[in-house]
Simulated scan of single mutants.
Amino acid sequence: MSTNSDVTLSKVGSKRKFTGFKIDVRAYTMIGALLSIWVLFSLLHERFLSATNLSNLFLQMSATAILAIGMVLVIVAGHIDLSVGSLVGLTGGIAAMLNVWYDWPTVPVILVTVAIGAAIGFVQGWIIAYRAVPAFIVTLGGMLIFRGVLFGSTGSVTVAPLSPSLRTLGAAYVADIAGWVFGIAALLVAAYLVLRKRASRIQYGFDVSPFPLTILRIVVTGAFILGFVYIMNSYKGIPVPFIMVVVLALVFTFISKNTTFGRQIYAIGGNPEAARLSGINIKRRVLTVFILCNTLAAIAALILTARLSAATMSAGQTAELDAIAACVIGGTSLMGGAGTIVGAVIGALVMASLDNGMSLMNMESFWQYIVKGSILILAVYIDIYSRQRKKTS
């Protein structure tokens, strides 16, 4: 009898030991795909991995990444927002008109623009949450309305140039010393998070990887971070918009993983009926999600408009599709209930890398649409296929 018990315990122990080495296949697949894209374009064009081009790449991906951060919460909650691209155009146009036509200083322009984004998010979220109008319809209507308001308010003309202080929001770089401080701080935060997660797993009796492997992970992460700072400093420094992306990603990662609000959003998207029966105020949470998403769209609009030093009528066109694609590529499920902020940022970097690399290769624009569309379909297929396998296993 004791022999059978020992065998059983041995099997359980071996199973637990195996799970300690379990890795996030989707996350490593995304990183591997990104590195593969970089290697491919570096072989096809020698300038792709130059400091100048990488700096431009991180500038280009900033607006899409911020949109994707907000879109993750919406999709995780089981909804969609098709209006963020047109909202980028509208709020960017408002910021430019206030700054160029009415000589408003930078700070009031930023505050009013962000407030308008939040107000629009409140209106759309209220209609969706409290009047049960499908998000697809509400935001599709918003996409048309916002674009029309932009054309009417600006007279369909480009509004430029912005004041130098406002342009710094989208085109400035931090000094070399500040860049190294930022890199070291990022390394310390990354090390703290890894060690904290390990300590938490030990505290609750979960298996953990060997400590040397944890140290190796921190070292590799640090090498990437400090290497990034070195490359950026060899050109002009780290772009301010990218620092904003990192800060927002950290804030919303904390919100999604470490707050009651974040856990409730995942619960709503995973099983709305169970969430309702557990006492979650679904309407209020959905309203908040759309406010956050549209507020981030206004921030993305400020960055894009400042980088271009102008508000154009085409600003933000198809940006909602890029944001959705970045989320899906990054592992967010269109079925709701699953997705990460970091994954969405990586997805945005993948999309920007494809655009940047194909532009360097002077490829026709139609190829860019074909490639991005194909990758989006593949990402959704992989998500659905993996879900079906989980159900059958």
Rank of each mutant, 00 (worst) to 15 (best):
F254G: 02
M97N: 08
S209L: 13
N294L: 07
L354V: 15
Q60T: 05
V246L: 06
S10F: 06
T91G: 06
E273C: 01
I329R: 04
L287C: 07
A326I: 11
R26H: 13
M30V: 13
Q388P: 02
D103E: 12
M335R: 13
A186E: 00
S14E: 15
F18S: 10
G70F: 15
Q124K: 14
I225K: 00
G89S: 07
L87H: 08
R263E: 04
Y204P: 01
L49G: 06
C327Q: 06
G373C: 06
M30P: 05
L67V: 11
T158W: 09
A306R: 02
D81P: 02
G270D: 05
A77S: 12
S333R: 01
M335I: 04
A319L: 03
A274I: 07
S386Y: 09
A352H: 01
Y204V: 06
V174Q: 12
T91R: 07
V123Y: 13
A119R: 05
A298C: 09
K11V: 14
A301N: 08
G170H: 15
N99E: 13
A298T: 09
T52K: 12
G121F: 12
F228H: 11
V149Q: 05
I303N: 02
S163W: 15
S10V: 04
L9I: 15
G152Q: 15
I329W: 03
N356W: 05
M30A: 11
A51W: 01
M313A: 09
R26E: 14
L277R: 15
V229Y: 00
A95R: 06
G121C: 10
G121I: 08
L248F: 08
A178K: 09
L35S: 08
L140A: 07
R47G: 12
V328H: 02
S333W: 03
V251F: 09
Q60A: 13
M143E: 09
T113P: 02
F206S: 11
S165W: 03
L150C: 03
G227V: 14
I110N: 04
S36H: 14
R285K: 14
P210N: 11
T29E: 10
P161S: 15
M97V: 15
K197M: 09
P239K: 10
A352L: 02
L277N: 08
F224C: 12
G148T: 07
P164S: 12
V220P: 10
G179T: 10
V208I: 09
S83A: 08
F21W: 14
A199G: 08
I66T: 11
L296T: 03
V229C: 04
R276M: 04
T221M: 15
G183K: 01
A325P: 07
L296V: 04
G183H: 00
I243A: 01
F58S: 03
S333K: 01
L378Q: 06
R276W: 06
L287K: 04
A191T: 05
L73S: 14
P108T: 03
A352W: 00
P105S: 09
I66C: 03
A115K: 02
K15P: 01
A65I: 00
V246P: 02
F58Y: 15
F146A: 10
I231D: 07
A27E: 08
G32I: 06
A344D: 01
A95F: 11
V247N: 02
T295H: 09
Y266Q: 08
R147G: 10
M232F: 01
G316T: 11
G141L: 09
G155D: 13
L187G: 02
